[in-house]
Nucleic acid binder design. Structure first.
Lengths: 131, 131
DNA sequence: CCTATTTCCTACTATGTCAATAGGAATTTG
DNA sequence: CAAATTCCTATTGACATAGTAGGAAATAGG
């Protein structure tokens, strides 16, 4: 289940794209438009700045803005940054997950196929598709 | 993310199907084969009995067994019982979720489409496909 | 009837995550 | 210098996850 971090993060990205005027957009405005607590959004946008998804500028006239064109972002990359992983099962979340049963597990192939379908959908969907 | 309840529950169903001998299969055997704590499995199978997925019988010679043929179960119905819901976002998990922004939400259509893809995959996959 | 086996039931617990809130320091522009 | 804004650390309450523990009730075979 996608948490508020992922969902809100995506909405911030859409908001930034829709209200792009060439300069920085203050978080206060985004919080009001999206009806989300500004304090909580601070945590979210901080993570997005650290992840290189957006750029922040302090001080008067500051705010946030996208670093790429909306068609260059995928929903998958945004959600992965906010959620840590979008794997459906723990067995696939970590690259080096060494479940002793992985060779004989009857469910693993299905989880892999499922993960692949989810991945394809989310990485195929672009931010520009949501504007 | 699918929890251990869903994953283990599915494995119990597969185990019951694979070791079906016409009578009841004791949880002790399943726990040993699956390498899962019997105590924890008790919680899981109880939920499956209550949900009508399997049948339990107490006493010597007792255990659990499927109530339908493996091809009559879908992975979706098993996971839904164990997880409560398999919706990807809270906005869609409850039927009567009345988000005040649902009319103007730019992400809701995508979540609906995504949920539909997930649903189709999981309800299209049968228990018999995993044996 | 007795015993072994097995499910069934209630309760407890440790750990972690989620969804925020709070207060203030640092930065930048006019 | 003042106002606006991001940046940073800490804290909190509620809930879920992933079990563990102990024993009561049911059932079959001898």
């Amino acid at each position: 289940m996608i948490s508020t971090k992922g969902r809100y993060g995506l909405r911030v990205m859409i908001d930034l794209a829709q209200n792009d005027n060439g300069s920085y957009i203050p978080l206060k405005d985004i919080a009001e438009r999206q009806e989300i607590s500004k304090k909580y959004l601070e945590i979210i946008v901080k993570q997005m700045v650290e992840g290189g998804l957006i750029k922040g500028l302090s001080g008067k006239g500051g705010g946030y803005r996208l670093v790429k064109k909306p068609e260059k972002y995928t929903v998958g990359e945004i959600l992965t940054l906010m959620e840590g992983t979008i794997s459906s099962v723990a067995c696939l979340a970590e690259k080096d997950y060494n479940c002793p049963r992985r060779k004989k597990c009857d469910t693993l192939p299905m989880w892999k196929e499922f993960d692949s379908i989810v991945h394809d959908y989310l990485y195929g969907k672009k931010l520009s598709d949501l504007l």
